[in-house]
Amino acid sequence: MSNNNGNNNGNKDSNNTGSNIGGKGKMVTITIDDKKYEVPEGTRLLWAALENGVYIPHLCGIEEEEKPSAGCRLCFVEIEGFLNPTTSCTQPVKEGMIVRTRSKRIDRMVKNAFELLLSNHRLNCGKCAANGSCELQKIAKERGLKLRVSRMRKLDIEAPVDDSPENFSYDPAKCVLCGRCVWVDHNVAKVGAIGLVRRGMGRKVAAFGETTLAESNCTQCGECVQACPVGALAMKK
C-alpha cells in the first residue's frame, strides 16, 4: 500500500498543522467565496469560516483539539494553489488564502459523503429526539440535499438502543462515528467510560466489553449527550 506518497494535497507546505490555541495576536486576510475576512493567523479554516457566518458542513470537528480527527470528510473546500479539495478542519489559514466552499467537485463529494452517512444511519427524523437540532438536517438544508438514501444500498445497523442511563439513551444505529462524545468523555468529563472500539464497519462507540452504559464506569454526567451532533445520544423526554 502507499505509505510513501508524500504530499497528498499538492501544496508545497509541510509545516505543522497549526493549532488554534495561541492563535491570537496577528490577523491575516483571507477570501472565502469572494468575500474578504480578517481572521487570527493559524486558526483552522473551518472555525474561521464558521466564526464569520460562513457554513461548511462538518460533524467530527472539535475546535479545541490540536490534532483534528478529519474523519467525517464533509468539510472539503477548494483552496487556490492546491491540486485537490482539502478538509478545512485541518488547514490553518494563511495571509492571502483564497477559498471556495462550493464547486462542482466539492458539491459532489459532499453529496456522496452525506448519502454514505445516511446509508448507515437510522432515518426516523419524525420520532428522533434531535429533530430540528440535528446536524445532518442542517447540512441537508444548507446544501439542498435530500434526507434519504436514493442511489446507494441501505446498510442498517442491527443494534439495540441502550436505555440503561437514567436521563439519556444511546442508539448506535444513529451514530455517525464523529467521536465527539468520546473526546468530551476523555478530555472534558475525564471519565474514560466510552471509546471507539473495533474497526472498519464494526467500528462503534462503546463502553469496555461493550456492556450497557449503566454497567460501565459511566458517571452519566451528560457531557456526551451535549456533544452529539445527531440523535444517537439523546436526553429522555
Binding site: S69, A70, G71, M201
Partner: peptide, 11 residues
Amino acid sequence: SCGKCTFCRLG
C-alpha cells in the same frame, strides 16, 4: 479499513 473516515468505511 480502520473505519475512521466516511469514504473508506462506508464508500
